[in-house]
Design a protein around this nucleic acid. Structure first.
Length: 647
DNA sequence: GAGCACTGC
């Protein structure tokens, strides 16, 4: 084991919080927990916890630690949703996602089993990481013996340090001799990446797609062997660039046929993603055109050149309209450095930025906006409420969301009957919703299913709503794909269509062949089954029996409305293009082309979520009767300005 | 009329 961290245990002994700054890949996440174990932090049955933002990272880091003499599932273990590889009483080092650790707080609010918790990749500032940081700071006030290690790739560590500085003027903690220093320590560790030479464009480019294609061709012409990774913003960008590149290759001839062009984004079917990880055959050069997925979630070996467009798609939230949208946004310097670092994993590399050095130095933001400040907060707030944190506005957030966003979330939870007038969780609905690991609207739908005698159906629907990419679209067979979809399509809408798919999948004996034939994503359907199992265990715990309504789809739709009544829309009669308006805010919306109700355009619909790009598209849509709205949510619809469309 | 950055419980 490396002694790079020889002084870490001294820091952890002495300071309440230690901030470790070092690039990803410096071995922090594997070495620090082992070092803490040797220093005795797991003695006496205590746990050393280490959180990661992603499931895959939890699994890989845990197995890497297991390689050096500890058994996975015994001394070292991990917990992610659907999988617990720990052994209580035996496990000393536990890796887990930050979301799982927050869930553990519901059972054990002070996380008493842990002596040290390391939060890895804190610079990513995901909602759950930020929530966890706020909660850990709070726990430390009650449990000063708990030690924290915050691991970050950027020097934003300084603001982390301010956040964790818990020195107070009139400390009530008594003598400070046996207590840790409340001011965080900062420790820097060297990354083990190779140097990456940065190149900028001389003049700003007007068309980054064209510029990216030209840069790839130039690299192939002038530079030594090594794969190329290009960062673009989304699937359409990537598909367009693949097409452009292939056209150029045809024109340019022989030498360029050595280029192997591959797209990469999360929606890609499994088999296509595997191609990307296959080693490049001799004499070939791989060119991977990717979304942000290759920035953090996936690591490609063999990349020596990175082409950075300087843009990514980012979530952005408007609390007034309560709409989240995806907007192409300039990336931050931290992101640009992370992208460049992807070129230096196997040997020194080069990064070609499609923006000027002047722009990088003077205009690019140094850090991105934390996700917490770009999101709808309903899930986050219900979890804090369940942990007994009542003063949401006064919570000590690492990055405080706007008061408007917090108030909007409180309003939504109130309208669903999850919070009462004093903004306390209702009994039992509110507490039950908090326990279900889904969007509160979907959780509310599950609980209401009991009233309509259709819990069986609703559990299936809720599970489908939690997986993306139920369908696999294969290029070139659009007709067959559309026909397959029609076989399951239900006149009521997408939710009922999911029931038909689930039934078919079940009858096929959960066959992957059957999925393949029907253009369905086998991995996704397996996940549906898994989620459904977890949900069933939870609702049984509430005393809700599994009950089917057989073919009464009206009951199913009423249960859906009990959660999503706020998403009701009405077709604009005189619109020729399928325009709907939301009842609540008269927002212009359209049925998403992936919906079975696309082009069907029923008069009244309720949608599950909005995908907002250039237009607002409703995803997962169901046809309803307007009278069901007032029935389901009189408080929401009755006292509003009379809407002539309703009568 | 025509589309989905990325995670997670």
């Amino acid at each position: 084991m490396s002694y790079k961290y020889w002084n870490l245990s001294l820091f952890v002994m002495e300071y309440a919080a230690t901030i470790v700054v070092g690039e990803t890949g410096s071995g922090k996440s594997t070495q620090i927990p082992q070092y803490l174990k040797e220093a005795g932090w797991a003695d006496g049955g205590r746990l050393i916890g280490c959180t990661q933002p992603r499931r895959l990272a939890v699994q890989t880091v845990a197995s890497r630690v297991a390689e050096v003499g500890m058994k996975l599932g015994e001394e070292v273990g991990y917990t992610i949703q659907f999988e617990d590889q720990t052994n209580p009483g035996m496990t000393m080092i536990k890796f887990l996602t930050d979301g799982v650790l927050i869930r553990e707080m519901m059972e054990d609010p002070l996380l008493t089993k842990y002596s040290v918790i390391m939060v890895d990749e804190a610079h990513e500032r995901s909602i759950s990481t930020d929530m966890l940081l706020g909660l850990l700071k709070m726990i430390q006030r009650r449990r000063p013996e708990l030690r924290l290690i915050i691991s970050s790739a950027t020097i934003e560590a300084r603001s982390m340090s301010t956040f964790f500085n818990i020195r107070r003027k009139n400390s009530l903690l008594g003598s400070s001799d046996d207590l840790p220093n409340p001011e965080p320590a900062i420790l820097s560790v060297e990354g083990k990446g190779y140097t990456v030479e940065i190149h900028y464009v001389e003049e700003p480019v007007s068309d980054y797609l064209r510029a990216a294609v030209n840069t790839v061709l130039l690299i192939h012409e002038k530079e030594s062997p090594g794969d190329i990774l290009v960062f673009l913003t989304g699937q359409d960008d990537i598909d367009a660039a693949v097409k452009l590149l292939n056209e150029e290759i045809q024109h340019l001839g022989r030498h360029y046929l050595d280029l192997l062009i591959l797209p990469l984004y999360s929606g890609l079917p499994r088999g296509d993603q595997d191609l990307i990880f296959a080693p490049t055959s001799k004499g070939k050069r791989k060119v991977v055109l990717s979304t942000n997925i290759a920035e953090t979630s996936l690591t490609l070996e063999g990349v020596v050149y990175v082409v950075d467009s300087g843009f990514s798609r980012q979530k952005c939230y408007n609390p007034i309209s309560d709409i989240e949208s995806l907007v192409v946004t300039p990336i931050s310097k931290a992101s640009a450095r992370q992208r460049a670092g992807r070129a230096g994993r196997v040997r020194p590399g080069k990064c070609f930025r499609l923006y000027t050095e002047e722009y990088y130095l003077n205009e690019m933001q140094s850090e991105g906006i934390p996700e917490m400040q770009r999101s709808n907060l309903v899930s986050c707030i219900i979890q804090l409420k369940a942990l007994g944190i009542d003063n949401i506005l006064g919570f000590d957030w690492p990055a405080s969301p706007s008061p408007e966003a917090m108030i909007r979330a409180l309003e939504v939870l109130f309208s669903l009957g999850i919070l009462d007038e004093d903004a306390k969780l209702t009994v039992p609905i509110g507490f039950q919703v908090a326990e279900i690991p889904l969007d509160p609207m979907i959780s509310k739908m599950i609980l209401s299913a009991n009233d309509f005698g259709c819990s069986d159906e609703i559990l299936t629907i809720a599970s489908f709503l939690s997986v993306q990419a139920v369908w696999v679209s294969v290029r070139g067979v659009k007709k067959e794909f559309d026909e397959a979809k029609l076989r399951f399509a239900a006149a009521e809408g997408d939710h009922v269509t999911f029931l038909n798919i689930y039934k078919g999948f079940h009858q096929s004996g959960k066959s992957s062949q059957w999925c393949y034939k029907n253009f369905l994503n086998f991995q996704a359907l397996k996940k549906v089954v898994e989620i459904r199992g977890q949900l069933l265990r939870i609702v049984k715990g509430f005393g809700i029996p599994l009950k089917s309504c057989d073919r009464d789809m009206q009951a199913v739709r009423k249960a859906i409305i009990a959660g999503s009544f706020a998403n009701a829309c009405h077709l604009e009669e005189y619109s020729q293009n399928g325009m709907y308006k939301t009842i609540r805010t008269s927002q212009e919306v359209y049925i998403h082309p992936s919906s079975v109700l696309f082009r069907v355009n029923p008069k009244w619909v309720v949608y599950q979520s909005l995908v907002s790009t250039d237009k607002h598209y409703m995803r997962n849509v169901i046809a309803i009767e307007p009278s069901w709205l007032t029935e389901a949510a009189p408080h929401f619809y009755q006292f509003r300005t009379p809407n002539p469309a309703l009568h």
